[in-house]
Amino acid sequence: MSELSLTQHVREEIERWKRRFPQDREQSAVIAALHAAQHENGGYLTTEAMDAVAVYLDLPRIHVYEVASFYSMFETQPVGRHNVAICTNISCMLRGAEKIVEHAKQRLGVGLGESTADGRIYLKREEECLAACCGAPMMMVNHRFYENLTPELLDEILDELD
């Protein structure tokens, strides 16, 4: 496995992050490296990508796997290219998040944690509060927040995804 399987863009991104840390502390860039590698790979991490990050940062491969599996934003299985995460935590639940989730499941024909057969949309099972509680119910689509959701608004947003 070679670090060369990381694209030029990902390597530049890792270098940009490494500059923020002391010279002997390059390990601090591992989270940023995994974000960049995941983004480049269409929304999930392959073993090959994680191995390449390990080689590039001179870390044991097991360490990179540990980090990738610890944080909820990293997907270690293939998923659809658009990441849709509907918050169902308490503030959103009180404002009808469950109805929004049901609507999304019906519309997309998938359950939580599944992707559409055409690989277009991944409906993430969101456990965490995403800190937009005053705009509940809310969701995050490819890192962007959408607040005060209604079934109609949800349809509109989902339809716009290519």
Partner: peptide
């Protein structure tokens, strides 16, 4: 990268160290 526990200050330090 998504972990409630990293709001705990020493978990945050571990995360900043790339763990």
């Amino acid at each position: 990268a998504g972990a409630y526990i990293c709001g705990e200050e020493t978990a945050l330090l571990e995360s900043l160290e790339g763990k």
